[in-house]
């Protein structure tokens, strides 16, 4: 069965300040959606609200995963339901090794008594770290602590590959990556591509989309999706910027601030 993630009329506030003002998006497994838009228009807010970040209040609308109300789930339940968020700014957790963390995460998705055995885990970790060209000793380092910007992003994708969610929401996974790393990370994401995986990829650059060809491209401004199209939309944005959309829609200030 193909899973579907539906975002309907989503309104989100931070500290009482409205950020998202009615987002509608539908993702199906097998599809890659790119979300673009100028700085401060609500892209990360969308990603965080779907995952249940404690600072973001959903004031209206719904998020459904195969008809189940995601917004009523705890954060860990959303992960168990098949959602994954690759964060723009991943947390650093001192004293917890990357591999202990990954094992806890994998085991949290399995029944008690059916934990992944150590050999299986190491094999899978090795394979994925190889694919992402990560140094193996990154797995014994503390989670994201002291990681460079690019290393953190690679580590997010490592988690994606280890956890194999139904949907990956990837927030600026390309920022901070050098040219080679961008290829490696794209390869990792492409390896997930298929009928059992859907993605919502937030990015500022066509560059990433050269490697991961999107099926759909959406532009967010003022906390709403203002334009949707195919991969050619991203190409036009790369060439011409956002002015033409603003002109077309009569938007003067694209940020969410009134």
């Amino acid at each position: 069965m193909t899973s579907v993630l539906e975002i309907k009329d989503l309104h989100v506030e931070i500290d009482g300040k409205p950020i998202l003002k009615g987002i509608d998006l539908t993702l199906k497994q097998g599809e890659i959606h790119a979300v673009m838009g100028p700085n401060g228009t609500g892209k990360s807010t969308l990603a965080q609200a779907i995952m249940g970040h404690p600072r973001y209040d959903v004031t209206q609308g719904e998020v459904l995963l195969d008809g189940e109300n995601v917004l009523e789930m705890e954060v860990d339940e959303r992960a168990h339901a098949g959602l994954f968020l690759g964060m723009q700014y991943p947390s650093e957790i001192s004293g917890v090794t990357n591999s202990d963390f990954l094992r806890s995460a994998i085991n949290s998705q399995r029944e008690e008594g059916d934990e992944i055995n150590l050999m299986q885990f190491i094999k899978k970790l090795d394979k994925n770290m190889n694919e992402l060209e990560m140094d193996l000793d990154m797995s014994t380092r503390y989670l994201n602590e002291g990681f460079s910007g690019g290393e953190k992003k690679r580590n997010e994708i490592l988690q994606l590959l280890m956890l194999e969610p139904k949907f990956g929401i990837l927030d600026e996974i390309d920022s901070g990556l050098d040219i080679d790393a961008l290829k490696v990370v794209s390869k990792g994401i492409n390896s997930m591509r298929g009928e059992n995986f859907g993605a919502l990829i937030i990015t500022h650059y066509q560059r990433l989309l050269n490697y991961i060809t999107p099926d759909f491209v959406h532009v967010i401004m003022k906390g709403k999706v203002v334009k949707s199209g195919g991969k050619e939309l991203a190409e036009r944005l790369e060439a011409e910027g956002y002015e033409w959309i603003k002109d077309e829609l009569g938007i003067e200030d694209e940020t969410v601030v009134e």
Partner: peptide, 24 residues
Amino acid sequence: FYLMSRGISQKEAERLVIHGFLAP
């Protein structure tokens, strides 16, 4: 939030953070 977003329960997440905090 970060830990829980990977499926780890709140209790386990707190446990990890506390052990990590005392690890040095």
